[in-house]
């Protein structure tokens, strides 16, 4: 999490009505159009294609948040039971559900700082959430005293789920959200500054990339019909980045960030930039 709410926060001021997305929209298939037209131009084909992506994303985000609740409950139980080993094991995989949809959370008031602030992102008295507990588990090697933080984390995650119903997702949010996810990686995961005590940054990295890829996949049919070259380039760059990241897999997870050498970090960072740049052009291609 970065300090401060990003520009997505303007969504808070927007009408909190989920833009006409009901289950009926999901069954509508986009009609083939003879000419690509910008979204919002009134063309039913274009609009419904993007509307479908939006409603599918909403489903995805809600699904991830539901899983986040389930996994956080297990994590919280381990902390409250004093089972430090299990808590440590569950920490990073649980966070992945959050990291996949983080830009949405950032649009929802204080939830992101409450869930995901790092130590110097907020005042000490306000610091809570995953990383507070992370410090307890890894730096202090204990769970005692963190039970309250665990409870509050679970409550915050449930609040996130509730507020999900109200988020006004539009195509522009999707597009910028994908780039935001990769910017997250650039700003703190690729440098190992996210997980200061557990060094599980690569889990977060992978989850951010998965979240961005999901958005791309949902937008792909529309994107391919407008700019097949761009779509192909993005797909190729996702593959290249994933291939690189997979070199650091360990069992179901990833090696500690501390195992990366400078050249590893640099190669990951460059592969990330190579993906984020064309990804940032999706909005233009889609006319959003």
């Amino acid at each position: 999490m970065k300090a401060g709410v990003k520009y997505l926060a303007w969504l808070l001021a927007a009408a909190f009505v989920f833009a006409g997305c009901s289950s009926e929209t999901q069954s509508a298939k986009p009609e083939a159009s003879t000419e690509a037209e910008p979204a919002g131009s009134g063309s039913p084909a274009a609009d419904s294609g993007l509307q479908q992506a939006i409603s599918q994303y909403r489903e995805y985000a809600i699904g991830e948040t539901d899983s986040l609740i389930v996994e956080t409950e297990k994590f919280v139980k381990a902390v409250k039971d004093g089972d430090i080993d299990t808590a440590k094991k569950l920490y990073a995989p649980t966070r992945m559900y959050y990291e996949r949809i983080e830009p949405i959370a950032e649009a929802l008031g204080d939830l992101d700082p409450n869930i995901d602030a790092r130590e110097n992102d907020v005042e000490e008295a306000e610091w809570r959430g995953f990383h507070r507990i992370e410090k307890g588990l890894w730096a202090e090697n204990k769970t005692a005293g963190y039970e309250d933080y665990a409870d509050r984390l679970l409550n915050d995650v449930k609040s996130l789920r509730a507020l999900m119903e109200t988020v006004d997702v539009d195509a522009s949010l999707l597009v910028t959200g994908a780039v935001e996810l990769l910017n997250e990686v650039s700003s703190s995961k690729v440098t190992g500054e996210e997980e200061r005590y557990s060094h599980t940054d690569l889990y977060d990295f992978a989850a951010n990339v998965e979240g961005a890829k999901k958005i791309y996949e949902l937008l792909r049919p529309e994107l391919e019909s407008r700019d097949a070259d761009l779509s192909r380039e993005i797909a190729g760059k996702f593959d290249a980045l994933e291939e690189r990241l997979n070199r650091y897999k360990s069992g179901d997870g990833y090696v500690s960030y501390l195992e990366l050498k400078d050249e590893d970090t640099r190669a990951l960072s460059q592969a990330l930039d190579a993906l984020a740049e064309p990804l940032s052009m999706m909005g233009k291609a889609l006319g959003v």
Partner: peptide, 9 residues
């Protein structure tokens, strides 16, 4: 450098 992203670093 920006124009080169994905082709050169």
């Amino acid at each position: 450098a920006r124009i080169a992203r994905g082709k050169a670093a």
